[in-house]
Design a protein around this nucleic acid. Structure first.
Length: 273
DNA sequence: ATACGGAAGTCCAAGTTCCT
DNA sequence: AGGAACTTGGACTTCCGTAT
């Protein structure tokens, strides 16, 4: 059974209605509200087909239908339109993106969440990308004073993680540079997932001369890299959480996400060079 | 012209929720 | 608890296009 034009219209109407009402939608509602030129019985038959195809679900026998995950997927991918943004909204996005273009991924995600919340007047929730599979691009050890350093790790996705490390003994700048080069030599190119205890222990075993200082730096660096694994969720506009769903808010959000999907802009945002 | 099949409509009984 | 309102599926009818 294929998803013909009429089924697509009914599915779109039903999901539009469900977004606004958050209640199961019946065939009569669609027939009255959307004037598709067919009776509620016909819509009911089509809805039964859509349910068989997995696009709709029925909470109980006498309720209307609600969209399934598969239904939402096709709605977002093929059925919904894209709302044109106003000049003010477009300008707001441009300014925000310019502000974060060279920033850390955390800032990018937080700003993305803010823009979504601003455009839709809803609570926006954005989940950080999974960094486990990203590769370590570079480690930079920066000396604060003789016993305090900052270790900065950068991944190929532009995720920047900095960690303060206090040393028990003073370290001179030449030694720090040598250790920095050593860590880059051993760790860059590995995924965060691959940098495990085994790898850390191997470095400690193999490297002679800096054992004492490496034994202080490596465990902290390891913990810091492991923390990057935790996928953070960024929430903005939480005061809007009880706002009623509004159809065109979803389309505005999609319009913004379409902008983000343009690879040239994404590259600019994520570029760390 | 007639028969046939599929699409679409009407009617009705039954299930569920909500309100009094 | 009981009635109103709403929904559904099923049975039946009507309409329309196509084949003979």
């Amino acid at each position: 059974m294929d998803l013909d034009e009429r089924k697509r219209h009914i599915l779109k109407a039903l999901i539009n209605d469900y977004i606004v009402s958050a209640e199961p939608v019946g065939s009569r509602t669609i027939a009255k509200r959307y004037r598709l030129g067919i009776s509620s019985a016909t819509i009911r038959n089509e809805m039964a087909d859509l349910e068989d195809m997995g696009y709709l679900e029925q909470p109980h026998t006498s309720a209307g239908r609600v969209p399934s995950d598969k239904g939402y997927r096709i709605y977002v991918d093929q059925l919904m339109g894209v709302e044109k943004l106003s000049q003010e909204e477009a300008q707001y996005i441009r300014t925000s993106i310019q502000k974060i273009a060279m920033g850390e991924i955390e800032r990018i995600i937080r700003e993305t969440s803010k823009i979504l919340s601003f455009l839709t007047n809803y609570t926006a929730m954005v989940m950080a990308p999974e960094t486990r599979k990203s590769t370590l691009k570079r480690i930079q050890l920066v000396s604060i004073d003789t016993t305090h350093i900052v270790a900065i790790a950068i991944t190929n996705f532009g995720v920047v993680k900095s960690t303060n490390i206090s040393l028990s003994k003073a370290i001179d700048i030449d030694k720090l540079v040598a250790i920095n080069n050593l860590l880059n030599d051993k760790l860059t190119g590995l995924t965060i997932e691959e940098i495990n205890l085994e790898v850390i222990t191997k470095i400690q075993r193999e490297v002679r001369g800096y054992n004492e200082i490496l034994n202080e730096i490596l465990p902290i660096l390891y913990d810091s890299l492991k923390c990057m694994d935790d996928r953070e969720v960024y929430l903005e506009g939480s005061s809007n959480i009880f706002n009623y769903p509004e159809y065109n808010a979803i389309e505005k959000a999609r319009s913004f996400l379409n902008i983000l999907d343009r690879k040239d802009i994404l590259y600019k945002i994520l570029s760390c060079d």
